Measured scan of single mutants.
Amino acid sequence: RCGYYVEKKKRFCRMVVAAGKRFCGEHA
């Protein structure tokens, strides 16, 4: 899952990502 920290939401993104990727499409 995406490891991007969403500052405005004060939590991690947690969106599912493709195999081998660290971030989702929105945060890549």
Results as ranks from 00 to 15, higher is better:
residue 9 K to G: 15
residue 4 Y to F: 10
residue 2 C to S: 00
residue 8 K to Q: 13
residue 3 G to H: 03
residue 16 V to A: 05
residue 10 K to E: 12
residue 15 M to W: 05
residue 6 V to S: 14
residue 12 F to H: 03
residue 10 K to V: 05
residue 18 A to T: 14
residue 2 C to D: 01
residue 18 A to V: 03
residue 8 K to D: 12
residue 15 M to C: 06
residue 17 V to E: 04
residue 26 E to Q: 09
residue 21 K to C: 04
residue 23 F to L: 12
residue 21 K to Q: 05
residue 12 F to T: 04
residue 23 F to N: 02
residue 19 A to H: 04
residue 12 F to W: 07
residue 17 V to L: 09
residue 5 Y to C: 03
residue 9 K to Y: 14
residue 12 F to G: 09
residue 17 V to T: 14
residue 26 E to T: 04
residue 17 V to W: 01
residue 4 Y to H: 02
residue 16 V to L: 07
residue 18 A to S: 11
residue 26 E to F: 12
residue 6 V to N: 07
residue 12 F to L: 00
residue 25 G to W: 05
residue 25 G to R: 05
residue 21 K to E: 13
residue 16 V to R: 09
residue 19 A to P: 08
residue 23 F to Q: 00
residue 8 K to W: 11
residue 25 G to N: 05
residue 25 G to H: 06
residue 3 G to V: 12
residue 5 Y to M: 04
residue 10 K to P: 01
residue 11 R to M: 11
residue 1 R to T: 15
residue 8 K to M: 13
residue 17 V to Q: 04
residue 10 K to H: 14
residue 9 K to L: 15
residue 7 E to T: 10
residue 10 K to Q: 14
residue 25 G to E: 10
residue 18 A to W: 01
residue 12 F to K: 09
residue 4 Y to S: 00
residue 23 F to M: 05
residue 10 K to G: 08
residue 4 Y to I: 10
residue 7 E to K: 02
residue 8 K to G: 14
residue 21 K to N: 05
residue 17 V to I: 01
residue 11 R to L: 13
residue 2 C to P: 00
residue 28 A to M: 04
residue 6 V to Q: 14
residue 4 Y to A: 10
residue 8 K to R: 06
residue 17 V to P: 11
residue 21 K to V: 07
residue 9 K to F: 15
residue 4 Y to W: 04
residue 6 V to T: 10
residue 21 K to F: 01
residue 11 R to I: 13
residue 11 R to C: 09
residue 2 C to R: 02
residue 17 V to Y: 00
residue 9 K to P: 10
residue 12 F to I: 10
residue 19 A to V: 06
residue 20 G to T: 05
residue 22 R to Y: 08
residue 26 E to L: 08
residue 7 E to R: 04
residue 24 C to M: 02
residue 6 V to Y: 12
residue 22 R to F: 15
residue 15 M to N: 02
residue 3 G to K: 02
residue 7 E to W: 01
residue 1 R to D: 14
residue 15 M to H: 09
residue 24 C to G: 01
residue 4 Y to R: 00
residue 3 G to M: 10
residue 23 F to S: 02
residue 20 G to I: 14
residue 27 H to E: 00
residue 25 G to L: 11
residue 22 R to S: 14
residue 5 Y to P: 04
residue 10 K to C: 01
residue 20 G to C: 09
residue 5 Y to A: 01
residue 16 V to E: 13
residue 21 K to M: 05
residue 4 Y to N: 00
residue 18 A to E: 12
residue 17 V to M: 07
residue 17 V to R: 03
residue 17 V to N: 08
residue 27 H to S: 00
residue 20 G to D: 11
residue 27 H to D: 00
residue 9 K to C: 13
residue 4 Y to G: 01
residue 7 E to S: 04
residue 10 K to I: 04
residue 6 V to G: 02
residue 24 C to Q: 00
residue 18 A to G: 06
residue 3 G to W: 11
residue 21 K to S: 09
residue 9 K to R: 08
residue 9 K to E: 14
residue 15 M to I: 07
residue 20 G to Q: 02
residue 1 R to M: 14
residue 6 V to W: 08
residue 20 G to K: 13
residue 24 C to S: 01
residue 15 M to V: 05
residue 12 F to Q: 00
residue 18 A to D: 11
residue 18 A to I: 03
residue 5 Y to T: 03
residue 3 G to I: 06
residue 16 V to P: 15
